[in-house]
Amino acid sequence: MLTFLIIAALIFTKTLLVPLGFAVLLAYLLYPAADKLEDKGVPRIATNFIIILGTAAFVAGTVYGMAVLITTFTGDLPEIHEQFRRNIDRVQGTISSWIGVPESQQDSMINSALGNTGQFFKTLFTATANSILAIGLIPVYTFLLLFYRDKFKKFLRLLVPADEESIAENIITQASEVVPKYMKGLFVVCFILMALNSLGFYLIGVKYAILFGILAAIFNLIPYLGTVLGYGLAFIFVLATQSPSTAVAVLIQFFIVQFIENNILTPNITGSYVKINPLVTIFSLIAGGMIWGLPGMFMVIPYLAMMKIVCENIESLKPIGYLLGTRGTERHTIHFNFFQSSSDK
């Protein structure tokens, strides 16, 4: 009953908590830079303004670049729609001759599917629009979280008994080290994948290669499911507007990029900062999506990492920490020794 009440509260307070949730993660990400500037004698208020304005400028530049790519894409929509219609007619003719399903019946099925898809995108757009309205709060929250970080640490210490203060200190220290490194690694991997995806799409002849390369990389911030979603979007577009052979090439690139990301990039960049087993990860992603939509899917893993740190440092919660992690299955894991660094061998 308590679990359902918590879930209901999270859904009901989504508009309030989503910006705060992103702000907490952004504050963790910017904390090392803020700490270094303060060590050099820069006042905290000036430090916060510098790093937040710098981050805002970087995000604004990225959004502007994406807007230019999307504008080019939308400008070609009439041509894309015509090519899509021709490809659908060709596929319908093939299905009609092979299976015997009349084209009129196929049209009815397609229209029904498109209607449901349209409703889905309408809902997604509404949710995205609501999120955009709250984006302005994220820099404000981030500034205040960084400014009052010592106060929050003191607050957490006051919550725990004196004999458990060392445990609380250990949790705070680990979270302030592990979470920023993990998130920084995620973004580094994301930017590398932007280049790999875009180059691959360009070489195999995908139209709007840079746009789809960037989108696929951004979706990769969602573990396991994200790459499938990003490449699925590119595959459907190519299949609908270009040749089947190009669509097959997109699938081949998907498996190559997945191998590189899973066995070279992620192990060597994000390292072992957060080791959460895939079953818990996928379950948490689905739950996060059900509760907070796409923002929930993006945020759930870093918060799960914090929860794992807490569980591993509290004696009564250590079994949960063990369950969340990957320990205990080492002998069943497939190792790619060729890609391991010399320090791991």
Rank of each mutant, 00 (worst) to 15 (best):
N263Q: 15
K122P: 00
A9K: 09
E169M: 12
T270A: 10
L317G: 05
E82Y: 13
S96V: 06
L137F: 13
V188G: 00
V310S: 06
L211N: 11
I291N: 12
Q253V: 00
Q253N: 14
T227M: 07
S176L: 03
N197S: 00
F84L: 04
I80A: 06
P223I: 14
A57T: 03
T13R: 01
I214V: 15
T15S: 11
K308S: 08
Q83W: 08
T329L: 11
A217C: 03
L37H: 07
G136E: 03
I301P: 01
V238W: 11
K14V: 01
L156Q: 08
S342R: 15
E330I: 06
D163M: 06
K275V: 03
S243R: 14
I52H: 01
M1D: 13
K181F: 00
F120T: 14
I252N: 10
V228P: 01
V140C: 01
T55Q: 07
F191I: 01
P267Q: 08
T270V: 15
L124Q: 09
V248K: 15
G185Q: 08
T15M: 03
I276W: 06
V206L: 03
L30K: 02
I214H: 06
S104K: 11
F73P: 06
L279A: 13
L265R: 13
R157C: 02
V18F: 04
L279H: 04
F125P: 00
Y224W: 15
D39E: 15
K318Q: 15
F73G: 10
F339V: 08
G328Q: 10
N268W: 04
G61C: 05
T227L: 06
N116V: 10
L30W: 01
T246P: 02
T47M: 00
I269H: 04
T126V: 10
C190M: 05
L196C: 06
S97T: 14
N87F: 04
M299I: 05
S243G: 00
A249C: 07
T47L: 00
G271L: 10
P32T: 00
G75L: 10
W292V: 07
I6S: 10
V228S: 06
R90S: 09
P139Y: 05
N197K: 00
L5E: 12
Q258E: 15
R90E: 11
L215V: 15
I260T: 08
A247I: 09
L156E: 07
I236F: 15
I80C: 02
Q106T: 08
M66E: 02
L146R: 02
A209H: 13
